[in-house]
Design a protein around this nucleic acid. Structure first.
Lengths: 145, 145
DNA sequence: TAACAATTATTAGTATAACAAGTAAATCTA
DNA sequence: TAGATTTACTTGTTATACTAATAATTGTTA
């Protein structure tokens, strides 16, 4: 049914994801922001879900646990988040943004809004819906379980 | 116009690109294939464009030159490609697949076809066209020059 | 209850790729 | 011819992914 090869989508997908990340990273660097895009995504996720365990945050960010642990170590060193005891399960640690972390996320909001505007020029709300639907479908199709 | 934040697309984009890559990588590993997905994309590109310089190949693959040089070193060590003198410009080197490299790409074709089928379940040819159009638009919108 | 299994976070080691800065050779240009 | 540009390479650093193993805790079941 589909004539084109894997290339014709995986290359485009990969190239575009990489360019978005690079563009964001360059904007961060140009503003002197001491975060990688991935680190920002961790902070942002925690901003939206203020109290998560390592495992929950890792899942939401699509990272494995060792990777997240190292990222948290870094963000902790930078003072943007903290680890807190879990009230009922002593294996777990709850993660929280510090005030500094929260205001960092807020400070980045306008910058991030600029990416969006720039990236979505010449595209419509309908395109956005296609985009999310198609990408989510691919994502779910490749569930490994 | 667009209500959602950067997250609502960059997260999905990044997550999906990562999952596609992981899925491909797992399939490669399960078949005992000694290539990363990025290495495969280099070989595949060179398969389609049989005679490229470092710079041309780097551009086509979206890699910078130092990264490509190291990847070529690796692929050369594995015997999949070779460097050849450029006939008219002695600064350049032409890159070519070896016979081994060519048959490797061919051997991977059915596997790669499986990814495509799996990823695109429940999606139409029309979706594919939306997909490529939208991603290419974003890609071009973020051109840094 | 005791033994075993599963879960959570961590640690360590390795590999890949991105990025930055600089070098050398060749080519182009003014 | 002198200087600028291009091409490829080298080196060093960093971020992230993956694997495997460990310790502590919790859950399960015989």
């Amino acid at each position: 049914m589909l004539k084109e090869s894997f290339n014709q989508y995986s290359f485009i997908l990969d190239k575009t994801a990489k360019r978005v990340k690079q563009f964001a990273q360059n904007s961060f660097s140009a503003q002197g922001i001491d975060l990688t895009v991935d680190q920002w995504s961790v902070l942002k996720t925690l901003y939206e879900f203020p109290l998560l365990t390592h495992k929950e945050l890792a899942d939401k960010c699509g990272k494995d646990q060792p990777t997240l642990t190292r990222m948290v170590d870094l963000l902790l060193k930078k003072g943007y988040m903290k680890r807190v005891e879990h009230p009922s399960d002593r294996r777990c640690l709850h993660l929280q943004l510090t005030d500094l972390g929260g205001s960092k996320v807020q400070a980045l909001a306008p910058l991030v809004k600029d990416f969006r505007m720039r990236a979505w020029e010449n595209l419509s709300q309908e395109d956005f819906e296609h985009f999310t639907r198609i990408l989510n479908t691919i994502y779910n199709n490749l569930e490994t379980k």
